[in-house]
Design a protein around this nucleic acid. Structure first.
Lengths: 340, 340
DNA sequence: CTCGGCGTCTAGATCGTTCTAGTAACACCA
DNA sequence: TGGTGTTACTAGAACGATCTAGACGCCGAG
């Protein structure tokens, strides 16, 4: 058995440096009110003892806690990228991050309450599934920022990506390189599927093109299945609900002996790690996770520090063109001109 | 501006129920020493006020903290599955989990120290990259359990998967269905790459077969690259370092017009979400994340509660056969017999 | 009638910090 | 000389829980 030694406290440092506890506290958090000479003395003593302030005590006592609570879904790989970026944004503004995952058998309310129990000064929730009323309840306790979802009611901040703009970019890109017969494989009942569906319809209408929409979903299987119902009358380009769905479409096309993008162009959405797979090189609409995360962190901190009212910020996505989209082949172009 | 209301404390509940703070504490943590009638009264008052004990205060005061610190890599999708399972295991034993990610610009020491500052009673580190000495330093403060890595020194617990057994299963599976010319695309400098390399060599030796090993790595690109150097003399089966590497191999083979598993069988390792992709259906060695996570949580709690010495537990992986491995084709079998 | 034991309950100390209020020393200026 | 600042520091109260030690009422045994 190894003996577990007690960790040094502010008291130990104070004794070692020959000052009061309060002064150690002042030095440790870089507050004004200590002479440079004693500051050095205290810092030295702290370093010597390997002292680190105890978050529990600090969080308990101080009103200004500098702790952001972040909830994410352990099953969504995409959320990990946001976590990553949120850490960077938070630490650069001098804040700590408390993580809590929504997992199997661990509902969102549990994750949120855990964050609150740890004394988070604000909550950042990635694509929360709670109702606006439930969210408002938490917003009564601390500022709440919803990330990737914007219909969250008045008292809750939101940072989201402009789905309509994203779809417009996709459509403009494809029509710009000659495509006319474009299909959208939608996300079914997934979050923001309805928005993207409507945007696709509106954009195709605007251009006077037929808006063909096929029921899909967020997984590879959904993409594969949708493709099957498309085989009889293949379009020249597909905009999938997301990257995984697009992946299914690409694989399905290849299995049928068709070439992407020579025969059919395919666009994804999210610009996730799947899109970057070297053999795939999927063209995709990027929501720019780091940017969104930074924006959410900023909103949260501004709400904590200032007395601003909640706001809904919308960021504009951008298109990342890789190798699954290419100009319409000339022979296909002819056949399309003949179509009704 | 919405007014942030103060959250109720043990004092509020005590007043509402007409008892002392201490009694509320006793009731809330289910300790003995309260009459059933008052217990109900307190519980009722707590429910009414929406009271939840404050983790910071609880953790600060009590010696027995019931909090496990878990560090994971935000970039490793595989770790998310472990987080998921760890939550389940921890809550089933009445423990809370504190998460801390190793991310870009956030080294492992920072993640660990954050967990310690929050008062974790034990640490579970997923595939830690620190040296045995550094780990021992932390183990002097709280019990430390290393997950997926076992060369961590004496004072640190470890829970890992038997890599040799995993490779043996892969080799036995392939040889059992007729394969003789098997190649291992290794993991380069990645964690446990050396172990798997040695295991492959030993197992092939045992069977009197040539152990051909190609430098690879943990990503799709590594798999693709390795495949390129293989084209001149294609084996009938490949054991890749992990699933992502295997994915690159499969895609590369398909791009060359070869069929998997008809022309070449491919085995992955990890049984990650990639392996389960519907169009891939990769045969893979599963380390069984939920099981490992549960074992790590159990070790940690046993160390906290009992006074057991650190131990190294090794779990046996199992093979999940899907659609990328099939019996050796007869025509290939002949040509192999002729080979030296 | 006292005593010990048991079950129930409470006052007050405590965890390691931060915060508030205040002291002491010293300089500045009228 | 005495008021007014300013700077450097400190004592002690908080924060919200748990824990320790002990009080109180009640019962049955001596």
């Amino acid at each position: 058995m190894t003996e577990q030694q007690r960790r040094p406290t502010v008291m130990d440092v104070a004794q070692a440096a020959g000052v009061s506890r309060a002064l150690v506290s002042i030095v440790m958090r870089g507050a004004p009110g200590a002479a440079e000479s004693t500051r050095q003395k205290v810092l030295e003593a702290a370093r010597e003892l390997g002292y680190r302030p105890d978050s529990r005590a600090r969080l308990l006592r101080s009103s200004r806690t500098r702790l952001l609570g972040l909830s994410f879904f352990s099953a969504h790989a995409f959320h990990a990228e946001i976590v990553d970026a949120a850490y960077a944004a938070a630490t650069s503004r001098g804040y700590e991050l408390a993580l809590s995952a929504v997992a199997k058998g661990r509902p969102e309310t549990r994750a949120i309450e855990s964050l609150l129990d740890f004394g988070s000064a604000a909550l950042i929730l990635i694509s929360p599934t709670l109702s606006a009323e439930e969210l408002a309840g938490y917003a009564g306790q601390v500022p709440v920022v919803s990330l990737l979802r914007d219909d969250v009611g008045e008292p809750v901040d939101s940072v989201s990506s402009d789905d309509h703009a994203g779809i417009r970019m996709a459509v403009d890109h494809l029509t710009g390189i000659g495509h006319r017969r474009i299909v959208h494989i939608d996300g079914g009942t997934a979050v923001s599927a309805e928005l993207r569906r409507a945007a696709f319809r509106a954009e195709m209408d605007r251009l006077g093109l037929p808006a063909r929409i096929i029921p899909g979903g967020p997984t590879e299987e959904d993409g594969l299945r949708a493709l099957r119902s498309l085989r009889a009358d293949l379009p020249s380009a597909v905009i999938a609900f997301n990257d995984r769905c697009a992946l299914g479409v690409v694989e399905g096309l290849r299995a049928d002996g068709l070439k992407v993008p020579d025969d059919v162009s395919v666009l994804g959405y999210d610009d996730s790690q799947f899109a970057r797979l070297s053999y795939l090189q999927l063209s995709s609409v990027s929501q720019d996770a780091p940017l969104l995360a930074a924006a959410a962190v900023d909103r949260a901190i501004d709400r904590i520090e200032g007395t601003q009212a909640p706001a809904h910020v919308v960021s504009t996505p951008h298109l990342v063109v890789r190798k699954t989209s290419a100009p319409l082949r000339d022979d296909l172009r002819e056949s399309v001109r003949l179509a009704p």
